[in-house]
Design a protein around this nucleic acid. Structure first.
Lengths: 158, 158
DNA sequence: ATCCGTGCAAAGGCTTTGCAACGTG
DNA sequence: CACGTTGCAAAGCCTTTGCACGGAT
């Protein structure tokens, strides 16, 4: 939880700052405001490498001293998705997970039905196959998800 | 999964009967009962070509004179999934759809974000790509879903 | 100053569950 | 006949929403 990352730590890999900027720009374009709550929520999401549930995100916020309501978390996550900076995914459970995009390319998920761990992967060939198949039907694809459920290496052994 | 091939009802196209038989066998194996309600629910699902929501299935049941409670619909659908005769899929909405398997092979979904229509498709190459990618990670795949969201031919035109 | 945003709590929608009566094997 | 099953309604869970107050531009 490197929450307190100094504002402009410029240090190379800081894509978080860039993402925050994008978010602010998006909000501005839409005539919306870049509030402290929105910044805090976006930061937690952007700094996370995992798939966050709203509840977990809320928990991390509280842990870092921020006070944000559950309602605002949901509202802001929707904004982040609308801004194209995050993705909402269903990973076999009955609730949503959120993951930031942050320059990451399309990727798929493998979900272990044993331990719940999630592995991300990507295959360009698969991407073009999806593209080709859909176009053949006159379908104009916007986004897609591939989810594989099974057992991860650890769970297969035991 | 050549679970119950031999049956031999031979009567050409009627795969519904075969599926019902499989369901009954599954229940029997598990020490469960093949009740009228379960049969009615299974039939509606097996006879449907589309993706059914619990509510729609319930509606069709009532339409055909059967009296089955919502609770039993949900409970039975879970059994059908457990029996490997049906699949539960999330198609972008916040609730589940159910589709029977009935000898249908793996297939993917294209969901039109314009009109909601769903197109099914299948590409063996894609299947093997998924298989290969997962195995490369020591992951043992059990099932997978591919969902593409976009605009169908009709909606693209307008 | 004007709206937009936030928090709270209540409402919503789908799905699950406790319990007593019922029906199947 | 015993034990799984059903129906009903209430409860659960995640998520959304109405409303009055507070904050950003």
């Amino acid at each position: 939880m490197s929450r307190s990352a100094p504002a402009s730590s410029s240090s190379a890999g800081n894509s978080v700052d860039g993402a925050l900027r994008s978010f602010r720009e998006y909000l501005s374009q839409e005539g919306l405001k870049f509030t402290g709550e929105r910044r805090a929520i976006a930061m937690v999401l952007f700094e996370s490498t995992a798939h966050l549930e709203a509840e977990e995100l809320l928990h991390r916020l509280k842990g870092s001293g921020a006070t944000v309501s559950r309602a605002t978390v949901y509202r802001t996550l929707d904004l982040l998705v609308a801004a194209g900076l995050a993705r909402k995914v269903r990973l076999g459970t009955d609730h949503n997970f959120f993951e930031h995009i942050l320059g990451r390319r399309q990727h798929e998920h493998m979900v272990c039905i044993g331990c719940g761990s999630v592995i991300e992967w990507f295959d360009p060939e698969l991407a073009s196959l999806v593209e080709r198949n859909t176009r053949e039907q006159g379908f104009e694809p916007a986004r897609y998800t591939v989810q594989v459920f099974g057992r991860c290496a650890d769970c297969v052994q035991s």
